[in-house]
Design a protein around this nucleic acid. Structure first.
Lengths: 201, 201
DNA sequence: CCGAAAGCCGTACTGAGTACAAGTTCTTAC
DNA sequence: GTAAGAACTTGTACTCAGTACGGCTTTCGG
């Protein structure tokens, strides 16, 4: 076991799985972009991607997941982002860095996601999905980072940071250059960090 | 039209509608409390309440709505809360007052809702529902209150306040006295208002 | 009391999500 | 290389939320 030839780096099975994942996802995004989220059924996606409906649901937990789930590569980057985080800076600064890192990580797909959210009412419910998917890992990270802190306070920090990120995502116009979004994220986190009871500074 | 006899205060039609609403709602909460959200179908609720499935959906937009929607009486109280808000205090203070007023308004049902959320995975997705339902009106209120403010900043204030409220609701144990929850709401809003970048104060 | 509006119900449909058994493809240990 | 077995795919069949609609009953206004 664990031979080191090229094909053993990632077995045929794994490679096929990743390829299927990407085919399904890109097919789904294309169709949804063309017709709108509600006008595309899972059936349509599966057929167009050349798999069965059953298989679609073995890759994605729901129809919405196909819009929001991360590519395995991106998952690795996201994990690296959390791991390589400086531990000598204040928590809020570290969180800001993570938020900006995440924003950069999502640069390819967020504009599309934003457009879909803006036009597809059926997707609004999960608007938070764009960011909520990262909550469990972030929570864990925060717990490791501040093991002695008050639970409520920690949760508040996390939820507020996510609210700031979401606010930036909502305010941003996907036709603007991505830099604008990064600045919005930065602004929102700075404001929330400084305290919203104070007048704008 | 517009006679002032007793029966004209609220026509028979309206009274029946309100009665039906309350019957459906209380039936639903009872069943869901007994068996869990996912183990109760809309069919069950409708049957037990003595109406048709169709009628259920004419009263509630979704199965989740029956858990979170406000009683018309509560809607009036909620609107009054927004209207009677002092305009001479800083926004964040006013928001804190509203949050506390809302918490008091929900005192009857929030413990039950919290219990349901804690145990019913199917409801988690809408966890925000407990508070998101108030967003549109709050947003409007904020817009009226600060017509000249930066849109992003305003949205951030709103989203952060809701995050604080949600954090309190998540942290609170429904078996604790309700006072604890009110204090949590107050704490979370105070912290967020003071700025999360600063150490606990 | 009569017409119009509002409300209720049964029926029938779409589409998401799950369960499962049978078939296919890859892996691995020999 | 091959055979046992794990992992993956697929079709089928089901449950349930949510929508559309036509017909019936109740209430309202005059």
């Amino acid at each position: 076991m664990m031979r080191c030839s090229v094909s053993a780096v990632m077995g045929l099975r794994e490679r096929k799985k990743l390829a299927a994942w990407r085919t399904i996802r890109s097919t789904a995004l294309r169709l949804i972009d063309e017709r709108g989220f509600d006008a595309v059924s899972v059936e349509d996606i599966a057929a167009e991607a050349g798999v069965s409906r059953t298989t679609f649901f073995s890759y994605f937990a729901s129809k919405e997941a196909v819009v929001f789930d991360l590519d395995p590569d991106e998952v690795r980057q996201w994990q690296a982002l959390l791991e390589n985080c400086r531990t000598d800076t204040p928590v809020w600064e570290a969180l800001t860095d993570i938020a900006l890192g995440l924003a950069r990580l999502l640069a390819d797909r967020l504009p599309l996601q934003k457009r879909l959210l803006d036009q597809s009412p059926g997707l609004c419910r999960t608007a938070r999905g764009a960011c909520d998917g990262f909550e469990p890992e972030l929570r864990e990270w925060l717990g490791r980072r501040c093991p002695d802190a008050d639970d409520v306070r920690t949760a508040l920090v996390l939820n507020t940071a996510m609210a700031a990120f979401t606010t930036a995502a909502e305010a941003w116009n996907p036709n603007q250059p991505y830099e604008e979004f990064l600045e919005l994220v930065s602004d929102c986190l700075r404001w929330a960090g400084a305290g919203l009871a104070h007048p704008t500074g």
